[in-house]
Design a protein around this nucleic acid. Structure first.
Lengths: 140, 140
DNA sequence: TAAACTCAGATGTATTATGCAACTGATTGG
DNA sequence: CCAATCAGTTGCATAATACATCTGAGTTTA
């Protein structure tokens, strides 16, 4: 087994390579949405609606960037805004019907891409991989 | 165990979240180098020297982007160029002494960051995680 | 061998994501 | 009720990136 240092280097390097590739692929799959913008939409759904500031914290982005990207999503009709009943300074952002359709379609395409790439992975390896990633991100 | 689709979704989502965070952290660690530019330097070392076109293929970037980023690295004195003896159209790019020092320092800082984050991971989990990532990227 | 093609790299130009700073409106707390 | 806080927006500057084009060096072929 290689040393811990070498392994850490591998993890960093491979995760970075993934990041680049994901961005590239995302640009093909949803041409009008950047990877981050798409991920914001996804997060809105996964969290059952959230505020812009939540997105900024989750993705480590400036709130101005979030504001602009949500503006894009709104212009495309992919989200709806609602006043936050708990604090009327904020707005709850949710995918619109069109946004949900886009997510559905993106999931489908992603499934194809990933299935192709991960076809020969056993369910157990896949699940363990997902578990490691979840664990890794959770510890930030 | 969750379904394969759900697991694939988790992998995609977590990898994407990582990508954003990595970019953010990289901006702190090496202020004058973007994550990708730093990764290029790292790849030059890991591969024992490579051409610009190799970097473009590896990171799925346009060669013009690579050209500009390598220009940045050269301006900072972090790389040296040498004619490719096998094909004199190309240039072999390698970290300079200063580039190696920067990598060394970055590795040290990364080790601290990752060690903090991955402190409670056993060597076996760490190695398996690295293995999954390598395998994942290799299948592209 | 000369001409046509290929390839790595560089450059011009436009787009886009991003961060910081300043501002607005609304809420909350002392 | 006034000061502090907070979510969001906008102005401005910078940087990464892609696409198209150009250049110079190799390679292939007629």
């Amino acid at each position: 087994m290689p040393g811990r240092d070498v392994t850490l280097g591998t993890i960093q390097r491979e995760l970075t390579a993934f990041a680049r590739r994901a961005r590239h692929k995302a640009a093909q799959i949803h041409p009008d949405l950047s990877l981050v913008t798409y991920s914001m939409l996804d997060h809105m759904q996964a969290s059952g609606g959230c505020r812009g500031i939540d997105l900024a914290e989750h993705f480590l982005l400036d709130k101005s960037t979030v504001s602009r990207q949500t503006a894009v999503l709104e212009r495309l009709g992919l989200i709806v805004r609602a006043a936050d009943p708990a604090d009327r300074r904020g707005q709850i952002l949710r995918p619109s019907a069109a946004g949900l359709r886009l997510l559905e379609e993106a999931h489908r395409q992603r499934r194809e891409t990933f299935e192709e790439r991960l076809a020969d992975w056993g369910d157990e390896d896949l699940e363990r991989f997902a578990g490691y990633l979840r664990r890794y991100n959770a510890e930030g």
